[in-house]
Simulated scan of single mutants.
Amino acid sequence: MRQIVTSVFILASALAAASCSAAPAGDSSAASTPAPTTPDTAAPYQVSTHGNFNQPWALAFEPGTSRLFITQRQGTVVFFDTATGTNGTVTGALPTVDYGGQGGLGDIAFAPDYATSKQIYLTWSEAGEGDTRGAAMGRGKLECGSNNACTLSDFSVIWRQTPKVNGRGHFSHRIAFSPDGKYLFLTSGDRQKGDPAQDLTTNLGKVLRLNLDGTPAAGNPFADRGGVSAEIWSYGHRSVLGLKFDSQGRLWELEHGPKGGDELNLIEPGKNYGWPIVSNGVNYDNSDIPDHSTRPEFQAPAISWNPVIAPGNFIFYSGRMWPEWRGEAIMPGLGPKLLVRVAIDGTQGREVARYNFDKRLRDVIEAPDGSMWIAEDGVDAKLLHLTRP
């Protein structure tokens, strides 16, 4: 496969975006105030471009292989073998997605016991009655019979957002497994409704802790309430597009604010993160929302951005290829078209660099060798491979 290699440089420029508006996929649009500057130094990587993909949303390496699986929002799953350059397709029992707005096929995750179970998890937006929809999650068995073809079978729905509502935004549906492999954590967006994020009788606007079969995990903070309340780990969230454990086993989420106020949060069980009562942004009509500092009873973000960075996802970087980045959160941006590095100081975040790109960036993943793969957003998107020069 032909590779085009270019050098990418950091530009400490005036960047701006408003997160989760009516832009494509509802993730960003232009705003007006300058972003904080960061050190003006050359980016320590080179970029090669690979393939053409249709609205990629999530990336996941198949354990023990060099195959990188990619969900595409209209409802397909494909893969790219990063060692051979071979492309492949997943067929079989894929779910029927309700595509439109921010909706479509979402996350893909390989079960902690994938080596023996061959189970994978998918999330997507699912149609309901009367022009309603909500996020759903299912799991099935993946069999790869050749280098360019895999089949999904025995697929079933194991979780749904409750209730289904109208609109096509803020599904969130990111998956993270606990470091011990016993639990599945899942983000459930507020569906652009706001108030349900504070309502413990719904699972909208929440981070959830589930068993691997999608049922509520024992010992959750609101288990005594029963129903979907038993799923809830934390609440008061808006549109959560990143969910990761760090090397200490702590859970973090990356959340889109309204006009300003994107957040990186350290997630603790039972805590309320404030949306829509507080935010470090403002409403889209420029009306005020009280800042986090005015309501200390809510959990404040580790770091927030105003203007937004409109992140697509993030990783905690191992340091294998860039030792100086060890432990940092690496975030691709949808609105300002950038890659952001954030150092973690205890329970706080600190932006240390941002690197400009030509197109919106949807997802990032670290390869076993420490290089990084990034999916551009939108139609005719490319995979970008970042390596040390």
Results as ranks from 00 to 15, higher is better:
G189S: 05
N211R: 02
N203L: 05
P196W: 00
S188A: 06
L208W: 06
F185I: 15
R191P: 09
L212F: 15
D199A: 01
N203Y: 11
L210F: 08
F185M: 15
F185T: 14
F185V: 15
G205M: 04
D190S: 08
Y183L: 14
K206E: 06
L186N: 09
V207E: 03
K182R: 12
A197Q: 15
T187P: 04
Q198W: 09
D199M: 00
K182Y: 03
Y183S: 14
P196K: 06
A197F: 13
D199P: 09
V207N: 07
L186E: 10
D195P: 01
F185Q: 15
G205E: 11
Y183E: 11
T201G: 12
L186Y: 09
Y183K: 14
P196L: 01
N211C: 03
F185K: 14
K193Y: 12
L212Q: 08
L186R: 06
N203H: 07
L204P: 15
R191I: 00
L212T: 09
Q192G: 12
L212H: 11
A197H: 15
L184S: 12
L184G: 10
V207Y: 01
D213P: 13
K206D: 06
T202D: 13
D190T: 00
L200R: 13
D195V: 02
D190M: 04
Q192L: 07
P196I: 00
A197K: 13
K182N: 09
R209D: 12
T202S: 14
G194K: 04
D190K: 05
L204Q: 15
T202M: 03
L210N: 11
V207K: 03
T202F: 03
K206F: 02
L208N: 05
L210C: 10
S188E: 03
G214N: 04
A197W: 14
L186P: 11
L208M: 03
Y183V: 08
T202Y: 07
N211S: 08
A197S: 15
Q198G: 05
G214T: 08
L210I: 05
A197M: 09
T202H: 11
F185G: 15
K206P: 07
A197L: 07
G214E: 02
G194E: 07
K193P: 00
D213V: 08
Y183T: 11
D195G: 04
T202A: 07
N211F: 04
N203T: 03
R191L: 00
N203K: 04
L184Q: 09
T202C: 06
N211I: 00
G189A: 04
L204R: 14
D190G: 08
L204T: 13
Q198T: 04
L200F: 05
L212V: 11
D199Y: 03
L186D: 11
G205F: 06
Q198F: 10
D195S: 09
L184V: 11
D199T: 02
R191S: 12
G214I: 05
G194L: 02
T202E: 13
L200A: 08
G189T: 02
L204A: 14
R209N: 12
F185R: 14
G205Q: 10
T202L: 02
L200Y: 08
T201V: 06
Q198M: 05
L200M: 09
D213F: 13
N203Q: 06
D195T: 05
Q192C: 04
G205T: 00
A197C: 08
Q198E: 08
K193I: 01
